[in-house]
Nucleic acid binder design. Sequence first.
RNA 1: UCCUCAGUAGCUCAGUUGGUUAGAGCAUCUGACUGUUAAUCAGAGGGUCACUGGUUCAAGUCCAGUCUGAGGAGCCA
Length: 483
Amino acid sequence: MFNKRIKVKELLQTEITGQEVIVMGWVRTFRNNQFIALNDGSTNNNLQVVVALGLLNEDTLKRITTGASIKVKGEVVPSLGKGQKIELKAIAIEILGDSDAEKYPLQPKKHSLEFLREIAHLRFRTNTFGAVFRVRHALAFAIHKFFNEKEFVYLHTPIITASDAEGAGEMFRVTTLPIDGTAPKKEDGSIDFNEDFFGKSTNLTVSGQLEAELGAMAFSEVYTFGPTFRAENSNTTRHLAEFWMIEPEVAFADIEDNMNLAEAFIQYIISYVMEHNKEDLEFLDARLAEEEKQKPQNERQEFGLIEKLKFVVDNKFERITYTEAIEILLNSPAYKKKKFKYDVQWGIDMQSEHERYLVEKHFKKPVIVINYPAAIKAFYMRLNEGCETGRETVAAMDILAPGIGEIVGGSQREERYDVLLNKMKQFNIPEKEMFWYLDTRKFGTVPHAGFGLGFERMVQFVTGMTNIRDVIPFARTPKNCEF
RNA sequence: UCCUCAGUAGCUCAGUUGGUUAGAGCAUCUGACUGUUAAUCAGAGGGUCACUGGUUCAAGUCCAGUCUGAGGAGCCA
């Protein structure tokens, strides 16, 4: 019975009228006891089902409420009304699932994003979230397509790890030991993880990069795409405790190759969505424009959503060194007028306000910043040669995007065994636990590079959604693990 | 974790210097209408004013604490 149904998206594209079809979906609105706006999630556009007077008995008519699921057999006819080309003249309607209109939280009216977040299990049924999650899907698909076309190997890195060496952030502990204080203890009173499931202390991964590097040392080109966890108590519009990350890792590559890959990658997946999710983007574009109208003039975005995406696809990203970035900031009117809260000088870790200035005010497009001071970056990043003493830099690269800040963080990796070992000592990384990582530098080491891209931040950028909790189906944030 | 703001009907909000029975729009329900597009028109129901305590003759309104949400910062992707 079900495979005979035609999807609303397909039906709306048809020019042929007169045929009899079966559609199923959820009622968005029922106007005038006569017009059903039916949606099945295949597109944001609703199918108008016309119910002739007297077709249904009073009881069935009453059960066609917002949120109810129905099956409609009908004839495709040219629409008499404006707003749609075709409509479905109902021959028979079957209620598949009732929806008590008095209790159903979604009403045929505008809802705030905050409210919809509280009913995340139902919010997919709204236009905005329908569009957002179809775009999210398309982006995910485009990512695999891009790497597959380039013959990268998709490497599944572990979700539970024993390494806490990277220092990317606070970690969630994974354990089967009791938490009521009865866990086995060592003589010094600390918990004895020898007795734990894995025989050692384990956590949820904060990054698959180190393992991806191992893969790159055999397949040349790999990428990971999976969930990542950070137990940071971050309460912002761009942080989640559970998020998805894409981490390509490429052997025989330097920082230059890395930048080229990241830029081509971002442009590819955005182009894919622009081509395949035109309607969704148009809806999100209009939604954003509406939202922008509420803001005071000086806070409004210069570009519309689609305009912005087009710009990113058509233009090269700006590429500057950290040193140049600092110079731009020092020479900026904002700095001279003391508009920055935090001081600027070579060696600082740039603050949000500084990154924002570079991207949104100065260049007005995505910016790749490379060669950061070694002291503020991770131990595995490659030390640049020929630096002034006291001004050592590493071959790191951050891509900053308007509106969300850092969207990509990457680097050329330190492939020289001695230099890496030295760095690990400086950063207090336990060599013993990291023997497997060091092994790659002992046995056939090669220059290599890679980066990490926060998937949700990418979805934010493409959809124009300002809160990261609205671009992941079920957000995990401090004090929130509903659904 | 820090700073700022907020929490009043199902939703979005108003509620004056503390003072009768806490309001509106939308949604819902009932009826009318029947080519509607956020349908329209008429009527009805709907409230532990986040929670706990305090000040006061009197608290939605003032004070303290707690919880929750939002925005920003830090951390980062």
